[in-house]
Computed example of a mutant assay.
Amino acid sequence: MKDVESNSIDTIIMTFVLCSAPDPLPEQLLIEAHRVLKSGGELHLLDHVLSDPNVKPMTNLFQKLVNPLWAIIDDVCRFKPIVNYLNQMKTTYSKVDYQNIGVPVPFFLISDAIKGVLTK
């Protein structure tokens, strides 16, 4: 978003972006979104995530095992702990709210997701 003026955007929506970006790009995307957002502007996101090993240990293990193949099947998507990126942004954004959700899909492997709002 180099051509986008700083502090010029009210709202950004990211849907299944962070899971598709190789590291360290997710963090850089969140920082760049912060740059272009106006004060009080919001970044809304939805992404699927690596299942919590404490809640769904078998799903988490299976996701880790198929992750390299999954990137080929689902066009570079990876199962990642997106919450880690969001927690890192707590020092950048004025407010970071997120929650884990279940996505109503027929395949258990991709049913864990996170939705969040980051406020500048």
Rank of each mutant, 00 (worst) to 15 (best):
P53R: 09
L30N: 04
K95A: 14
T91P: 02
A21Y: 01
N100S: 10
H34A: 06
P81N: 08
H48S: 04
D97F: 11
K38S: 00
V36G: 00
K38L: 00
D23F: 09
T91A: 15
P68N: 11
L25C: 01
L86D: 02
Y93V: 07
V66W: 13
N87A: 06
T92M: 07
H34V: 02
D97S: 14
E27G: 08
Q28V: 08
L50H: 08
Q28L: 13
W70Q: 11
T59L: 15
L86V: 05
L18E: 01
Y93G: 08
N67Q: 12
K80I: 02
V83P: 00
L65W: 14
L30A: 05
M58R: 10
D74G: 12
Y98V: 04
P57K: 05
V76D: 10
L30W: 04
V76W: 05
L29K: 01
A33D: 03
T59E: 12
P68T: 11
K64E: 11
L18V: 00
D75A: 14
V76P: 00
Y93C: 06
R78E: 04
H44F: 05
Q28S: 08
L30F: 04
G40V: 00
F62D: 01
Y85M: 00
L30E: 04
C77A: 15
Q28G: 01
V103T: 14
L61T: 14
K38C: 00
Q63M: 10
V49D: 04
Q28W: 04
P53C: 06
D52R: 10
H44W: 05
L43Y: 05
I101D: 09
N100V: 09
P68L: 10
G102W: 07
V66Y: 12
K64I: 03
K95P: 05
K64D: 07
P22C: 06
Q28K: 14
A21C: 08
G40T: 01
H48C: 07
S51P: 12
N100Q: 10
H34E: 10
M58F: 12
K90Q: 15
V83K: 07
Q99Y: 04
Q99M: 08
I31Y: 06
L29H: 03
V36C: 00
T59D: 09
L69K: 10
D97V: 10
S39Q: 09
E32T: 04
L45Y: 01
V66I: 15
R35M: 00
I73A: 14
N60H: 15
T15N: 11
S94W: 03
D75P: 02
P26Q: 07
A33Q: 03
I72Q: 15
L37I: 02
L29V: 09
N87T: 11
E32V: 02
I82T: 06
P81E: 05
Y98Q: 05
N84Y: 02
I73G: 09
I31S: 09
N60W: 14
P81H: 03
Q99H: 09
T15Q: 08
L30M: 07
R78K: 10
Y93D: 08
I101C: 13
F79P: 05
W70M: 12
T91K: 15
V17L: 14
V55E: 15
S20R: 06
F79A: 04
